[in-house]
Design a protein around this nucleic acid. Sequence first.
DNA 1: CAGAATCCCCAAGGATACTG
DNA 2: CAGTATCCTTGGGGATTCTG
Lengths: 117, 117
Amino acid sequence: MQPDVFDPNCGSREVLNLIAGKWSALILYALQGRTLRHAELQRTIGGISQKMLTQALRTLEADGIIQRVALPVVPPHVEYSLTPLGESLSPLLTEVCRWAQDNLTDVQAARTVHAPG
Amino acid sequence: MQPDVFDPNCGSREVLNLIAGKWSALILYALQGRTLRHAELQRTIGGISQKMLTQALRTLEADGIIQRVALPVVPPHVEYSLTPLGESLSPLLTEVCRWAQDNLTDVQAARTVHAPG
DNA sequence: CAGAATCCCCAAGGATACTG
DNA sequence: CAGTATCCTTGGGGATTCTG
């Protein structure tokens, strides 16, 4: 039996929801091919709160998507990067982010047509 | 100035959030290359409520992603399909759904390692 | 700097009932 | 069949404060 995202009881549905989170795609996009620290991530991703960033990072780490490395120094120095599993997912979400940017105009035009007045 | 999903004030962020909705990816996945009626969509996507399906369809329609065709018959017959814009987005989300299915095992393994006991 | 903890609010979303 | 309307609950998520 293959995993099936159309099946609400299949684990792949959770995985999909993890990805569908408001911030996951942006975090993966930001970590594409580079390592960033907590503060750098927050600065890169405009509008994300510290709480949500931490929470998303924890979840993504638990799911094996990103790797967290804490250097034992004072003040703390924590680096986040993609795992191989994350590297395989990142390009897909990057594509989606790019699509959002590239097709913004078309979407806005559709909205105008659809909601006249 | 290019659209930038990292900018919280850029419209592309909304577009991304539209995609990031809990059901959008599944709906686009389900409509990949075919036309489905309301009830068929609900049957295909396990676990979605009628309310959420209708709501998501309305939003996707307003954003020019899907097309709604209501045949003037009794009882009502309404068909949903992708617009050209939707056709350009669908493959990307389909990839993400497939990734969720294909990498379910790895994610579950990572969770087990990460949360021992 | 990284993040844990707390408070609080609103929107997502489910369940149910009703309509053309 | 394809919705709309209503009620209600959950938790997503922001703001703020505190700590090693």
